[in-house]
Simulated assay, not measured.
Amino acid sequence: MRGGALPPRALGLMLLLCLVWGLNLVAMKLGNQGIPPVLQAGLRSSIAALLLIAWCRWRSIGFGLWRRDGTLGPGVLAGLLFAVEFIALYVGVGLTTASRAVVFLYGAPFFVALGAHWLIPDDRLTRAKAIGLLVAFGGLMLAFFEGLFAPAGERALLGDMLCLLAGALWGATTVLVKASALRRAPAMTVLLYQLAVSAPLLLIASPLMGEVWHVEPRPLVIGALIYQGAVIAGASYALWFWLVSQYSASRLAAFSVLTPIFGVLAGAVLLGEPLGHLFGAALALVVLGLWLVNRPARSAAPSAPRMR
């Protein structure tokens, strides 16, 4: 395990993940036009689980000694946290504005930093890392500043709290993977736990929350669902869990604030959505904050040799 600054390879992979996840925000909007949201999340996990099992069988990749390696308990818990996270997120987004939902959801890096500080010995919260997180989060708030003060409805506070809960569960899952036996398990095993547990739970929760099971078979809707299942819940999450097992969880999680930034850019390019007037300054703050988070810790100066 490496708790220091992220090397260029990890930085490049994390930027790729944030770009892919940012496009997922657009895919979710397109999918919601023909599939109820919690049902969409359940179908996404189901598709990803089937594809993961098929790919591992084709490549003759096993899932490790999951019956005896101590990962079953934390793996099931990770899947449960994953399912509740998305239920809270989808319900919360329906009660508040998208801008407020994004800001509260991406409080997740703070939960990761605090959990890692107490539970992961080589991933302590330093002063530079804390300042970097605050600066990056300030940039995120600036990017969505105009939407934060838009009318949000009478139940917006409940929606905000649910989105904050979703961020806390996201952070808790990341720390759980890093601080438990899951950190030694293959990334495919960690991912299968989440998918296999969350898929039935989300599919059961969908009708209980009043959703009607109906899928409009339009190309954009089906394409968005396949993208979420194969690329997001499949390939990108496998890469994410591998990164978490190898590098500092708090530094990796800090980079997730780039996801909504990329989402805004994707919305502007693909959906014609306008960029806010403060977007450039917001992006600069986010970059500065991430630089502070990932700056190598200063090593103590060597003491002068004593005269004999």
Rank of each mutant, 00 (worst) to 15 (best):
G22M: 13
A282L: 03
P7A: 13
S206Y: 00
A152K: 04
G267F: 10
L157T: 12
L25P: 04
L265F: 13
F104D: 02
R2G: 15
S250V: 11
I226D: 01
N32F: 11
D160H: 10
G94N: 15
P74V: 14
T96V: 10
L292E: 09
G92T: 10
G280S: 12
A281K: 00
M14P: 06
S303G: 05
A49M: 13
P219Y: 09
A150N: 01
L17Q: 00
H214G: 14
L208Q: 11
F137Q: 08
A166P: 02
W58S: 15
L134P: 10
F241Q: 02
V102S: 06
L265A: 05
G4E: 07
L243C: 03
I61T: 14
R306F: 08
A224H: 12
L252T: 01
S46W: 06
Y106R: 06
L158F: 13
P37N: 01
M14Y: 05
G42S: 00
L169N: 06
S99W: 11
L258S: 03
G272P: 09
P219H: 15
A27M: 06
A48R: 03
A101G: 01
I87C: 02
E85Q: 09
S303K: 07
Y247A: 02
S180L: 14
Y90Q: 14
P296N: 09
W118N: 06
L158G: 14
L77Y: 01
L81S: 11
A150H: 02
P8V: 04
